[in-house]
């Protein structure tokens, strides 16, 4: 019964050809896969496959170049914005984006991130925030929430000892070089659509030379948080999004929050 409608003319959704057929190494339910696909769908819809250069980070998404069917360059830990700066300056007509996690962008690469944003390099920065170091086994990250238990904070994050969770998107939004900054999630289909809209605008603006476009995506890390994927998404909605509030922070060079 259902088999006869599975024909090409009835197709409404299919994985984009800009993602390779390689099986992703991410844990079941990891937001990285959804974010990879949202980004590649936008690049595909805009027809920019042959004009795009992506910079892969170090962290869980270190193998992003295996999954994205575009030109990719691997960078040293945290240095993706510096590599992106060089590529964009040498090839100004290309779309250059960095794809980084919170350990890469907000910890070891904070200096590169801030100075790249301050110079207003015409790139798109995709920042995946899962509030933990996923790849190395769930240690505390700068973005770990207050009281959150991790491998290196077994009694919960003590803000008096290690400081407050870093809202890096709000921080870079203050810089004059940043054209837009916003925070999104990927835990519902509507949120994925919103993210795609923001990525499209970021690509258009960075290609038009308006400045750095910064898109943060809050994602769940069910392995690191020790939860099932569905519970992790629920926990994220209840706790992470309370501190890291989704929405636009800077639009067209003007702070809105």
């Amino acid at each position: 019964m259902s088999q006869n409608i599975c024909t090409p003319e009835n197709l409404v959704y299919k994985k984009t050809s800009l993602l390779t057929d390689k099986i992703m190494h991410y844990c079941p339910g990891c937001g990285h896969g959804t974010i990879h696909r949202a980004l590649m769908e936008v690049v595909d819809e805009m027809g920019l496959q042959d004009k795009t250069v992506g910079i892969a980070p170090v962290g869980c998404s270190v193998l992003a170049y295996d999954y994205m069917n575009i030109d990719m360059q691997e960078a040293a830990h945290g240095r993706a914005p510096a590599v992106a700066t060089a590529i964009k300056r040498l090839m100004p007509d290309k779309l250059v984006f960095t794809y980084q996690g919170d350990g890469d962008l907000a910890a070891i690469g904070t200096a590169e991130t801030i100075h790249c944003c301050n110079r207003g390099e015409n790139i798109l920065m995709v920042f995946v925030n899962n509030a933990i170091y996923g790849m190395t086994g769930g240690q505390m990250a700068p973005t770990t929430l207050e009281g959150m238990k991790t491998a290196t904070s077994p009694y919960g994050r003590d803000v008096n000892k290690v400081g407050w969770p870093l809202r890096i998107t709000e921080m870079v939004a203050q810089l004059n070089g940043v054209w837009s900054a916003s925070r999104h999630t990927v835990h519902t289909p509507a949120a994925v659509m919103k993210l795609k809209k923001a990525l499209k605008k970021g690509i258009e603006d960075s290609m038009a030379g308006k400045g750095t476009c910064f898109v943060e995506v809050c994602s769940s890390c069910n392995s690191g948080w020790k939860m099932t994927p569905v519970e992790a998404n629920k926990w994220m909605e209840e706790h992470v999004l309370e501190y890291f509030v989704p929405g636009d922070i800077k639009v067209d060079g003007k702070l809105v929050r």
Partner: peptide
């Protein structure tokens, strides 16, 4: 197509008639 859009591994293809 909600499932297709959210699937982290992009394994779902959706048809509609």
């Amino acid at each position: 197509a909600s499932c297709g859009r959210i699937c982290p591994d992009g394994v779902i293809t959706v048809y509609r008639a």
